[in-house]
Nucleic acid binder design. Sequence first.
DNA 1: GGCGATTTGATAGACGTCTCTCAAAAAAAG
DNA 2: CTTTTTTTGAGAGACGTCTATCAAATCGCC
Lengths: 377, 377
Amino acid sequence: MQSRLPTLSDVARCAGVSYATVDRVVNDRGGVAEKSVIRVRKAIDELGYVRNVAAANLSQNKTYRFAAIIPTGTNQFFQQLRAILEAERIRLLADRIDLRIEGIAAFDGEALCERLDILSQTGIDGVALVGTDDDIVAQKIAELRSAGIAVLTLVSDAPNAPRDAYIGIDNRVAGQTAGRLIGLCHGGACGRVLPIVGALSAPDHAERLEGMRETVTSLYPDLDIAPVIIGRDEHEIVENKLRPIFKNSHDITAVYSVGGGNAGLLRVLRSLPDGQNRPIVVLHDIVPQAREALEDGVIDAIIDQRPEVEIANALSCLRSIADRRIPDVTDPILPTVYFKENLPPHGRDSFVRPGHAVNRTASGHASKSRILKEIDQ
Amino acid sequence: MQSRLPTLSDVARCAGVSYATVDRVVNDRGGVAEKSVIRVRKAIDELGYVRNVAAANLSQNKTYRFAAIIPTGTNQFFQQLRAILEAERIRLLADRIDLRIEGIAAFDGEALCERLDILSQTGIDGVALVGTDDDIVAQKIAELRSAGIAVLTLVSDAPNAPRDAYIGIDNRVAGQTAGRLIGLCHGGACGRVLPIVGALSAPDHAERLEGMRETVTSLYPDLDIAPVIIGRDEHEIVENKLRPIFKNSHDITAVYSVGGGNAGLLRVLRSLPDGQNRPIVVLHDIVPQAREALEDGVIDAIIDQRPEVEIANALSCLRSIADRRIPDVTDPILPTVYFKENLPPHGRDSFVRPGHAVNRTASGHASKSRILKEIDQ
DNA sequence: GGCGATTTGATAGACGTCTCTCAAAAAAAG
DNA sequence: CTTTTTTTGAGAGACGTCTATCAAATCGCC
């Protein structure tokens, strides 16, 4: 009935050695005779001992100090990413993980470096940042790592930086998926695909475009790819470049927008004359605007990178590295395709993976401010 | 640098009351004057106190005892479900969750009841089972629940049983998604969709079919739906019913198979004469056969219910109920669409690049994974 | 002021692990 | 045989919370 799970003391008794010896074995302290090691291992096996993580964490009383640096600005995706992080904060704190969320101007390598400098001085175990292809950032990442700070790139990798890991989707695969979807939607008919990117210098944008191009050219020879629109993720630019194209020629049968600035695209689409067939439209990332457009039938599909999964994986990875263990093998995050029908419900926060934490809510609520406080000994 | 997160003692000191009073407040023990409650709450807020779940779990030293009952047999999906559960076992044990995984003949209500009886006698906190529409099962579920055992239905609901929750996808949404996908793939052309189900009496199959029908008839009037093939999830039956259809008429432009027995469908598809255009094919659930077919280009898309997410949600939910708290509001699991390009890898690969992996040092902390390895050996 | 009821304080043991220290025992080396 | 080295044992204190118990203080009420 109420059987107890075996503890280290049980293991010691079963192995016929002392607790100290068992401890030396399971915590790799060395200085144990081989035969004792074997007996301990055997006892662990026999009893089915599994370390009680609650007790282990408690005894170490370690607080992990992580930081996430997210671009600020109007980009809805990053706003969403930030919101997910904020929502995770309290939950994480209950597991003694102190997550600092910092904003930074997008694509400003120097500001990022400065922020990283400040962070590293405040004592921190790991940091997650959105990678850019930038030499000074790469160098700063190297500095942090040699100072023993774990560094992850999130959403977009930093190609030449010695980061511990990249957590995000494979953007080439995302582009290929878009290409497949667009190809399928033509049902064998001819067509012309118009790609829109923010900047070709952004690795993720370039990779998505390349992936789409690959799939379309190799699998759908009846499709043609129009010259790429560079929209800098700004909706006015996108709109201004797009309008003449749709006005002057009616041969665009599909649009693939790999980045931001989609408000401009959507305005153009919504204002198409009734006679003109709307092209197949595939966007990235479920942000309010894109969701609305999909619900309205203005676009056809959204490819999402599931930011909540990215964040969960990033935190798990940071923690593994901070513990000096090999990061847990997490499944790669796959780009997910959403149509109007299987669009997730509005509250994205509910997507947050169900934790295994016992979260018995105390009657009191913790404030969101000044969680971590210096406390006198 | 070495700041500590606040503890209940810190809260007590800050509120100017004793630890005992704080404890009474946060654990709802009653008998505390209103003004004290307010002071404690204020202190919690000010300090940003968050309960240390590791310590809480440890002090309670509670072991959750759950069971999952999964149909045995050749159904690849359930084999997969079982494998996922097995893989979770050790991880769960570390969190003091003892998960028992039991097999049972599929669709055998009496055997299920018998098993449930035995389980309930061994003392168990909760059980997850694949629901069937069966009166004796419904009654047994009611018994368990009144005995204080949490009961979840997994993958398929038990319509009239008073289970605590159903964890699975909305099958109507899945069908609608299939309908949308099939519609899109026709690119405006006419077509005829052939649905294949195991049995119309299976609620999930019926709902998927209904969802597909809904979307296709309302959004794609150029598409026609052929009479439904009932294949009983057996590949020979499916094959035998399918062959004459593809031999005699060439008007089927899409196939939607909602259940099992797809080996038969795949054989027919692979043997289609070169001249005959392969129809658009949409299946359910990433099982080895379906994966292979998608990789080979024999089918176009797989709609998956992400069993690993279902299991995570189920366990989280069981735990909530066992703790007598309201289960976390988990959103319905959404059917996910996979094409060849974004198919999850077979094994569990990681995006973490091993070249940059952290070295484990001798002075490193003990790792959970190490312990697990020891047990595995 | 005195009564009973309510509220508060002080404290102790338990949970399982980690990290120490110190001494004792066993094994290996001379 | 000693001496040195390696290996083992025993135990204590810490982590933060939960759950007790019992005594002391405070309150409301007559």
